[in-house]
């Protein structure tokens, strides 16, 4: 029991990761795929952030009052990764807009059919 509850952050990460990955693979709608990709990325962000957490730890302030410090580095890394994720989503959505303009659809199977026919 302790094994399951004590590491609940990792379980959350795994569940989110699988949900995201499943959406990317299983959905034919291009926007939903991007949403799935986002959930997938967010799970990794949570993995990083929870790595830096320490029970009772504070920010690394040099003072007599504090002894346990949580690592701030993963947070900084994830700030960068979030920016990368936003750029990816923005580019992906921009592509979907242009796909919709030229195909009139954002369903993968319909687009595939149009490409086959032409």
């Amino acid at each position: 029991m302790d094994y399951i509850l004590g590491q609940y952050n990792y379980w959350a990460v795994i569940v989110l990761m699988m949900i995201g990955f499943y959406i990317v693979i299983a959905h034919g709608n291009l926007v939903k795929k991007l949403i799935g990709l986002n959930i997938f990325q967010v799970s990794v962000f949570i993995l990083f952030i929870s790595l830096g957490y320490l029970k009772g730890g504070t920010a690394p302030i040099y003072s007599e009052a504090y002894t346990a410090y949580a690592s701030p580095l993963p947070h900084v890394l994830i700030l960068t990764a979030i920016v990368v994720g936003i750029a990816t989503t923005a580019l992906g959505l921009a592509l979907v807009v242009r796909i919709h303009k030229s195909y009139g659809s954002i369903e993968e199977d319909q687009i595939h059919k149009m490409d086959q026919d032409s």
């Binding site: 991007l34 997938f40 990794v44 992906g92 592509l95 796909i99």
Partner: peptide
């Protein structure tokens, strides 16, 4: 070309996220 780029984006991002993990 748009669909090719989109597909590359999805697979490329999965690859990059695996790298991040």
């Amino acid at each position: 070309a748009l669909m090719a780029a989109y597909r590359y984006l999805i697979l490329g991002t999965i690859g990059a996220t695996f790298f991040l993990i």
